[in-house]
Write a protein that binds this DNA or RNA. Structure first.
Lengths: 112, 112
DNA sequence: TCACTATATCGCTATATGGTGATATTATCA
DNA sequence: TGATAATATCACCATATAGCGATATAGTGA
């Protein structure tokens, strides 16, 4: 993989590496929302929400359209959720394994 | 999704959001390697490589074992490559679409 | 134990970026 | 045009972290 591509991929991952942006995307999963709606739904102030939305828009992860004085944001790249699914599934499996290792401490010998 | 889970997922994405770490993982895709081998293969200094490897190890993405005075690192979670594949495929599709939009400028009307 | 190699950690600086109040921009309506 | 609402941008501070030289630690063999 070329260095350019590597940088692009890293950039994409970084974009998803912020809990607040993940929460924005999660909100948008239900459908398009205005900035104000997102400000209310999450507990952020307006400039911060706008900033993160601008970043997501620049990264091509969300689209937007005007509706009067409002701006409606929406998911433009559902790949995001595939990625999150993968990571979540993995995290769940990992924590389950950790739990089993802790509860079945000392590798108790089960028959077979 | 809970906030805890969201934070975990974000953390995982951040871990993959550094080009140098992606290059380390790419190197390890071929098999386990010592720190020195990684220092030589990539163009990093030793403390930096060790630091990133420690982060990847803490995150559970790589495993390690001693061999004399050397430490052999290896991929412990192949999910990484699924994630990269998804992102790369997506990036490729996106740039192809951009190219088409640029070259076929003005939405030339093709028959049908 | 001493010397040597490989790796990890520490201390520091520089930079990137998130949060936030103030302000600018854009659109609507009277 | 002026007032108002919704959003975007600016300026600033605080914090996280990458990079790096110096140093500590672990393992090996004489």
């Amino acid at each position: 993989m070329s260095d350019k591509m590597m940088e692009l991929v890293a950039r994409r991952f970084r974009m998803l590496g912020e809990p607040f942006r993940l929460r924005l995307l999660q909100q948008l999963q239900a459908g398009e929302k205005t900035v104000n709606e997102l400000v209310s739904a999450l507990d952020g102030n307006q400039p911060n929400v706008s900033k993160h939305l601008a970043l997501l828009h620049d990264a091509g992860l969300v689209g937007r359209r005007r509706d009067g004085t409002s701006m409606l944001y929406s998911i433009s790249d559902p790949m995001v959720f595939k990625l999150c699914d993968l990571v979540c599934r993995n995290a769940a499996r990992r924590s389950r394994r950790e739990f089993e290792e802790l509860s079945g401490n000392g590798k108790r010998k089960v028959k077979s």
